[in-house]
């Protein structure tokens, strides 16, 4: 009885090992199962989802106009003080003073891509871009000014 149990133990052990070996041999011989993405080579075919949160950008149209009113809703929504909005007073054609955006300072190095600023924006002036290669040689390059030089607020956006 003892001997039979001993032999059974040996054979069931060997069988369980053989099952594992068969599975790994399958993968060794079936190279179509390989899932490696050869990243820097596949940049062209790499497709990120539209919602991917890579960095905050400001949308500009062809007339170099954006929709940011400088209301600082995003600045208040941001948990890490990533966004700093500097405003100035423009003179409207009617001769009135109006608050407008001067600089939209965005600290990418502080950003955690939580998306709260995008949700907070009342005029959809900013959105998340699908970039992800953020490495630079100097930290100061990560502090960005999102509104392009010479851009204005689009007419009709309040």
């Amino acid at each position: 009885m003892f001997i039979i149990k001993y032999i059974k133990e040996v054979f069931s052990g060997l069988k369980s090992l053989a099952v594992g070996l068969r599975r790994t041999l399958y993968y060794f011989t079936h190279h179509k199962e390989i899932i490696t993405e050869q990243y820097p080579d596949n940049r062209e075919t790499l497709k990120l989802s539209d919602r991917f949160k890579g960095e905050v950008v400001m949308l500009h149209d062809e007339n170099n106009e954006h929709a940011c009113t400088g209301c600082t809703a995003c600045e208040l929504a941001c948990p890490n003080a990533t966004i700093k909005i500097i405003t100035q007073f423009d003179i409207t054609p009617e001769g009135k003073k109006k608050k407008a955006l001067d600089k939209f300072v965005y600290h990418l190095e502080l950003c955690t891509m939580c998306n709260l600023c995008i949700v907070a924006c009342p005029t959809d002036a900013i959105k998340m871009a699908q970039t992800f290669e953020h490495s630079v040689y100097d930290r100061s390059e990560l502090t960005k000014i999102l509104n392009k030089p010479g851009s204005h607020i689009r007419a009709g956006v309040e």
């Binding site: 993968y27 060794f28 190279h31 899932i35 490696t36 050869q38």
Partner: peptide, 10 residues
């Protein structure tokens, strides 16, 4: 190479 192919890598 053996390790990579077994581990579905290149």
């Amino acid at each position: 190479k053996v390790a990579a192919w077994i581990q579905i890598r290149l």
